[in-house]
Amino acid sequence: MELLCPAGNYPALKTAIDNGADAVYIGMKNDTNARHFAGLNFNDGKLVKAADYVHKHNKKLHVAINTFAHPGAQQRWQKAVDDAVAIGCDALIIADIGVLDYAANKYPHVERHVSVQASTTNLAAIEFYQQNFDVARVVLPRVLSVQQVRQLAKNSPVALEVFAFGSLCIMSEGRCYLSSYMTGESPNTVGACSPAKYVRWQETEQGLESRLNNVLIDRYKEGENAGYPTLCKGRFDVDDNVYHALEEPTSLNTLELIPELAKMGIASVKIEGRQRSPAYVEQVAKTWRAALDRYQQSPEAYQVENEWMATLANLSEGTQTTLGAYYRKWQ
């Protein structure tokens, strides 16, 4: 199984490769990718450097073009494809059907992966992408149980990639407009969820409050761990019961699923976090490399080390991790 790591900048990319990533995924410095944050991502010169570094080490570079093209601006998404191909990327990760169509026609020889943002959760949808755009791989949304992933893997005509670690998106990706409902901006349209410019922190008599575009997302008592106000991870009121109505601040961690994922033939395990620091990338890449190598060496004896779990928990939202939808009881 390929270990696919995120890189939001050149130092993170180098760190990923140096610490055991088989492949790295990056995005352009504009709204064509779903981590469109200030100070992040790659432009012309950096793109070339990134590709050089990755290829010098015989690793692979994937470029995420995973937002949806705006009318009148489709050239920007097409240019992102052109630029990614020009630097010799090994795979394009695409969400928009129109952009996939462009890439498949213009660059049939460059591998196309269906982005998680395309929300492909079943065999017929996979066949749609395979038959229309000859895609090489589909990245599965974080809504399937392990059993469902296994069933798909058994029948899928193309390779599958799954999310292995990182911030947990609990909705079917690419089909969540909660962020634009509250702020006007969503991953699909601007490449960001719960954008930082709408976040406001305020000390009040009732405690520290986090708001997104003025809507109260959470309120913390003294000593409580306050996290970024991603709107699906706040505490809300359902008939006078205040709780994390959608999800708690937590990250996905699937170290214990490595044997199952490997046996079902999953092509790649993906680490989330292009917005995270090189230090995060280093720790996660190192830990996952160690786990995958351990499994490779003796599949039967594979066991998750406590130390790996502790390292990853420290890098997680709310310092806790979950198996998410892979585990049916989570659902």
Binding site: P71, D96, I97, F128
Partner: peptide, 29 residues
């Protein structure tokens, strides 16, 4: 969902694309 698009295409039947399918631009249309 695109699964239904795929099935309807195989059946060679016309269909409505619902609001939950990500059709944001001309190329996709």
């Amino acid at each position: 969902d695109l699964s239904a698009v795929q099935v309807m295409h195989e059946l060679k039947l016309p269909f409505v694309v619902g609001a939950a399918i990500n059709c944001y631009n001309l190329a996709t249309l």
